[in-house]
Design a binder for these strands. Structure first.
Lengths: 211, 211
DNA sequence: ACATGTGAACTGCTTCACAGCG
DNA sequence: CGCTGTGAAGCAGTTCACATGT
């Protein structure tokens, strides 16, 4: 196993996995790097390089066995187990995420939900009761949470993040539009929809300006 | 203006803008590249390089004027106008996006919403009526939509994308976990929450494995 | 013959270090 | 003196091209 794998490689592996699962459902038994590349919007060489960082999964002259490669990529991504996830923030975004079936299906189980609004605390979402954020640090440790999803307002997210880290959680998915400061041992990913929209705004104004 | 600007630069500019707006609210009049770097999780040199791609906005020995730089970055990102946005898919994610105040505040106005579920068609969200996806292509052209947000299931998203492109929309924000195939003149951004979670899964299993 | 796996070349982003200017 | 603006150096990710194996 190599020391350092780039973000981009990991992201592409996730995409390949989806295509592989689709091929599997359709009963396809073999794929070439070329086929994966077309679906993923990249090149065959890139696919082979990504995979070669973790081993040799293909057969020369033939391609990759779909079931074998699927299993291999799942394992690489650490999807062989259930991950215990906490959702902090039971607003609009939190609610959409809770209902998002894809997560559960991929082994991410939301085991607790927090909110600071007394109106919401005590309500049940499915079989999970919304708890008061006050007890967050303690509960996260007790529940052995692996990943925390932060869907809280930007002005409190750093404080929430600090408490999550204190509880020993090693990974954070942040929906607030700011950079979190965490120890290097904690993995952080961002989802920032406004930033994506602004990238589109930028692209659009460029082509207009060029006309 | 330079020919090619990287995705990463544009993303960072969006972040800088948020910090600048925050400084502005707090009445700070001047920032250094260093101050922006700390907030954005990058380096002072990177900030200066990003900005220098578009011009000289600072004063040597002093830093940047907050109001001036804010205005400059807004202009660079094309945020000086209202963008007309269509939301396709009125499910959980669509609903969360519709309510997401940040968009409107930054000049992205959702002017129409589509869904293919007859149950939903005809209902009103605020002052926008949900329309049948059947009339999508025609309506998008009539409404002069700039950007389409696709929050539809993965198995129909390519078809929806084709119709959106046909209507002449130049920018797409895609929430479905697949690569869209569009002409090079159309700008596409992705938001893929499962991919982000899988990156965390990958990171977590690495540190465990290393122990 | 065909498709993988991979060193080598290349491209482009990031970091460095310092000249330039307030 | 302090901080910006920027060529040059360094580094990382991508693409190329071919040896390797079926």
């Amino acid at each position: 196993m190599p020391r350092k794998i780039s973000e981009s490689t990991v992201g592409r592996l996730s995409l390949y996995l989806r295509f592989l699962e689709e091929f599997e459902r359709r009963g396809v038994t073999t794929v070439s790097s070329q086929a994966l590349a077309v679906r993923g919007g990249t090149t065959a060489a890139q696919v082979r390089k990504d995979l070669s960082l973790f081993g040799s999964f293909g057969k020369r002259g033939l391609g990759y066995s779909v079931p074998e490669l699927t299993a291999a990529v799942r394992k690489i991504l650490g999807l062989g187990r259930q991950w215990r996830v906490a959702l902090v923030g039971a607003g609009r975004i939190g609610s959409a995420l809770f209902e998002y079936g894809d997560f559960r299906q991929r082994g991410f189980r939301i085991v607790c939900v927090f909110d600071s609004d007394p109106e919401k605390v005590g309500r049940a979402w499915g079989d999970v009761k919304i708890e008061d954020s006050a007890g967050l640090t303690e509960k996260l440790g007790r529940e052995q949470v692996d990943i925390a999803i932060l869907a809280v307002p930007v002005d409190v997210v750093q404080e929430v993040s600090d408490r999550v880290v204190e509880a020993g959680v090693g990974a954070i998915l942040n929906f607030a539009p700011t950079q979190l400061h965490v120890p290097p041992s904690v993995a952080v990913q961002h989802v920032n929809m406004s930033v994506e929209l602004e990238a589109l705004s930028f692209a659009l104004s460029r082509v207009e300006g060029a006309a």
